[in-house]
Design a binder for these strands. Structure first.
Lengths: 311, 311
DNA sequence: GCGATCGGTTGAAACGTTTCAACCCCAACG
DNA sequence: CGTTGGGGTTGAAACGTTTCAACCGATCGC
């Protein structure tokens, strides 16, 4: 930038002015400066800018698992929206490990991101408030946070599970189980609770998975598809022997060969909204502090069918 | 940091020394400084560090489409590996649009990333050399670049297609087509050429897609699965009426309901290697300038079968 | 014709680090 | 006992920007 200034015979201040039109500059010098920039192949140093401005125009996205299409979609939308506003996106994977999560968050804080979005938070994490206390706006997706400063985008999982249970009982199912995400990744979401609540309303109880359940609700579509695969490899056909329900409605769920009954979450809208909440909070210099619930509805497909007759 | 220095009664230099053990510090003051850091909740400002150090410890990853599991896997591995070395990852989506790609790359340059990885490059892009000229190491995956300064990780697509054609001809197929990725996203990869070459070796020619082809090779698994879906919705069963071959071997390809014959690329190893090439180039202050070819092999599954009898 | 105003421009001070020459003190060495 | 050397510490310059008070003419209104 100094080179540019020298080359065009003006001061740094003027160069800065032509770059950001923060003050009027005569057309003549403007052109001279622009020419110098061109010739020198000068490109602004965002790092210095960030330091001075005390804002990096960068969003952090903290994902447990980028291979889950729901998370990936949210992240993708965030990136797109952020890009439109000239923000960059730093992604951090947590691999469902709280220690990694906090390390990643610390790294983001160190890098002075202007806002952070969690497409999902790991169990009982205190991370968000760690950020909030530092004045960084945070938006979490699909998670009801305690902290009022948090921006929250959720779907009404109770209503959704209500639909699921209605659908399943309508098909004659009474032994309904919930399948968690494989193993260790105890997520805080309310889905199992929501399912249990909906069942109880009809005088039913969730049964332990694999204990003669005729229908299994999964925590997400990826799990559901894996379960479907596992069941069928063991000779238990879906939906003839067992019905399977997913959650998310990822694109593949509607593939003819998969044809998964699931609860549709508007992932794209959620990602977009998350980005917008974060960006506008940043612009306003406030916390996101808003809670939105998005619609979620059952999409009945071929992975659910009539309950097999007892005995 | 100044606060920390004052609070512990030492100079900035000493605090810096304590932080990076760049010079010996007496145990007593070290403890005092650490205590002050703790009490003040001080966290280093990476932005200032980057400015001074002239290196951001950040990698850029430029992806056409994060929803493609192959790209996502590469990106994920890059992020993991980078994180291990204390690097952060800035992701940029190009949506297969050259203009977006170059805008994103410009943004990365502005943000002074230390290296850039392209899990795939859009058609005839001159982007990499734009970066290389600025001294930024670049690693591209699955793309044979002209520039010797480029780090390249590729698979031998000719050998792979050889296997594919052998497999298909073994099943009696003679009318074999190639399916591009939907539409506009003309990627530079050599796959169609590789297929054509393998066919010619056997005195065959690729036929235009949908022109009575009995087997279709797709540019990747996502396309293959979409094709499979489309075919079957039109009543053409796979593999009875048409055989379908993918490329990548994404996790879902092995799902029992999908069971896609495909060419396996070691996505994880490729991502890891890409990160390591970039990181070590950065550490050495050189360009990646290395070319590695990874093994790729056919995984025959149920989406390919005997060619239907003519007429 | 005089002060106020305004378009255009400058210079220097910050932003929060790292780095390095320089300094001080004391132990060891010849 | 004077020098050397090294552990420990300091101060200031630099990194590449933005910002802002201040300055300079010229035009304007009265």
């Amino acid at each position: 930038m100094l080179d540019v200034a020298r080359r065009s015979g003006v001061s740094l201040g003027t160069v800065s002015n032509v770059l950001h039109s923060t003050a009027p500059v005569s057309e003549a010098t403007r052109l001279r400066v622009l020419a110098a920039i061109e010739e020198l192949g000068y490109r602004q140093n965002e790092v210095a800018r960030s330091l001075k401005r005390r804002s990096t125009r960068t969003l952090g996205v903290v994902i447990p698992d980028a291979l889950n299409p729901f998370h990936a979609t949210v992240a993708l939308q965030v990136e797109r929206r952020a890009h439109r506003d000239g923000f960059a996106v730093l992604v951090a994977e947590t691999e469902n490990d709280p220690a990694t999560e906090s390390a990643q968050v610390r790294a983001l804080v160190g890098r002075r991101v202007d806002g952070v979005i969690f497409p999902a938070v790991t169990a009982g994490s205190t991370i968000p408030s760690e950020l909030l206390d530092r004045g960084v706006p945070v938006v979490v997706v699909s998670f009801e946070g305690a902290d009022p400063r948090l921006g929250v985008i959720a779907v009404d999982e109770y209503a959704a599970m209500e639909q699921v249970v209605e659908h399943l009982t309508g098909l004659g199912h009474e032994r309904i189980a919930f399948a968690h995400s494989g193993a260790h990744e105890e997520s805080v979401d309310r889905r199992p609770d929501a399912l249990a609540a909906a069942l109880r309303r009809r005088g039913l109880q969730p049964v332990p998975h694999d204990d003669g359940a005729t229908a299994v609700c999964c925590t997400n579509d990826v799990i559901a598809m894996a379960l479907m695969d596992r069941l069928e490899r063991n000779g238990r056909r879906v939906p003839e022997a067992v019905s399977v329900v997913g959650f998310d409605d990822i694109p593949l769920a509607s593939h003819r060969r998969i044809d998964l009954t699931t609860v549709r979450q508007p992932a794209e809208e959620m990602g977009l909204l998350a980005a917008e909440m974060a960006l506008s909070a940043i612009a306003a210099g406030e916390h996101a502090a808003r809670s939105v619930v998005m619609p979620a509805e059952l999409v009945a497909r071929g992975s659910t069918g009539l309950a097999p007759r007892d005995g």
